Amino acid sequence: MKGVSLLDQRVNTFMTVVDSGSFSRAAKTLYITPVSVKKQLDSLEAELGIELLERTNRGVTPTEAGRMYFESARQARSIMDASLQRARFLGGFAARRIRVGTSLLRPASKLLEVWARVGTESDLSIEVVPFDDGTELDDVVKHLGEDIDCIIGPCDAPHWHEACSVLKLGFYDCRVAVPRKRALACKPFLTWDDLCGESIMLVRGGESPVMDSIRAEIEGYHPEVSVVDAPRFYSIETFNYCESRSLLMETLDAWEGVHPGFVTIPMDWGYRVPFGMLYAKRASNAMREFAALVEKAI
C-alpha cells in the first residue's frame, strides 16, 4: 500500500482489513501474518480508545466509528500521496517510474507476472498504486497518466477503447458466483437447468459485448432465468448487494475469493472476457516504452 512511510503502518493495516473484509486476506496483501494484523489493529484501537472493527465468524466489518475513521484516513492518504508524487516529480524521480493501479477486482498481478519476465531489459521501475473500484474507477480511467499510468481489467467494453489505449493480455473465464448459503453452492459445475427459476445479475446491456451475448442467450433460450441489471461495472458493493439478497452473479475466474459470502462455480456456457492494460491515449514516452515491452512479452 502506498504512503506507508507517511501514514502510521497500523492505519494502513486497518484500511487494508476494511478493504479486504478479513484479517487473513489483509495479511496476504501486506505480506505479514494474520497474528501481526490482529496485533496492529488491537494496538490502534487501544491507542484511539474506540472500537474500529466488528469481528464475526464471517469476517470483519467497520463499526460506525470505524467507517468514519476509514474515510478520514483515506482522505489523508490521498493528500499525502499527491504531495509525494509532486515531490518526486520535482525531484526528477518520476520520469522512469510506471504507476500501475490495482484494486480488489482489477488486480495488477497478471501484468506484474509479465513484467517479471522482461523488466530486466529496461531501467523502468514499477510503483503499485491502490484505488477503489466503486468510487474511483471512472476518475482513474479519465485521468490515466496523472496519478496512475495504467490499470489491468476486463477490456471488451466499447467505452474503454474510446477513452484510452488498450493492450489485450489474455482472457478471463466467465463463471457464476453463488451465495454460500444456497444449495447450488455445493455443485462443482452448473448447467442452464441449475439456473431454472433463478435470478442472476449481469452488467447492464450495452456495456459489454460478452455480457450482451449471455443476456441474448438467456432471453432467447432460457426465459426461465431472470436477469437483474448490475451497475455499469462491478465493485465489492455489487457482491454485498447480491449476497444480502441471495442473488446469483455472473463473475470471472480472476475474482474467485474476493467475497467470503460467495462460491465461484464454472458454468457450461463457454463465455470469456478479454482483459488487458488500459493507459492514456497520449501516454508519456516511458509509458509507451513500457507498453511496447509488455506487448513483446505476450
Rank of each mutant, 00 (worst) to 15 (best):
T251S: 15
L124T: 02
E45W: 01
D173L: 10
S246W: 07
K2V: 10
S72T: 08
Q40M: 09
M249T: 14
A291K: 00
M267V: 15
Q40A: 14
S235M: 03
A280V: 01
R99G: 02
E237F: 12
L6V: 11
E219T: 06
C174E: 15
V273S: 00
R25C: 12
I50T: 10
A95H: 15
L137W: 04
G134V: 07
S213Y: 07
M80R: 14
C174G: 08
I265P: 10
A254T: 12
E217F: 07
M80K: 15
L247I: 13
A73K: 06
R175L: 13
N285T: 12
I214V: 13
A157P: 05
A82E: 13
E45Y: 03
V228H: 05
P260F: 07
G206R: 01
E256D: 15
A116C: 12
T191V: 05
S199F: 00
A65W: 05
K28T: 14
L30S: 05
K38E: 13
V225K: 00
A94S: 15
M68W: 07
R282D: 11
S246T: 14
G59V: 09
V17M: 08
I79E: 11
R272L: 06
L53G: 00
R77M: 09
G257E: 06
G206T: 05
L124A: 03
Q75W: 06
D19F: 04
E113F: 04
A26S: 08
P158A: 05
M15S: 01
F14Y: 14
R58F: 11
A87K: 15
A177L: 10
I265N: 14
K168C: 11
S43W: 01
V228P: 00
R10P: 04
F262A: 03
V4S: 10
F171W: 08
R232E: 06
P34N: 04
W192C: 08
A46W: 05
T264C: 15
K142N: 05
C174F: 09
L167I: 13
T251W: 08
F290K: 00
L105M: 07
I236E: 08
H259C: 09
L30E: 07
T120S: 13
D173I: 09
I32E: 07
G91E: 07
L190M: 10
L105S: 06
F262S: 02
I79N: 08
I126E: 08
C150T: 06
A185K: 08
R67A: 11
R77Y: 03
E51F: 03
F189D: 04
S246C: 12
R282W: 02
D193S: 14
C150N: 03
T13C: 10
S20T: 15
H222C: 01
G3H: 02
T13D: 06
L202E: 02
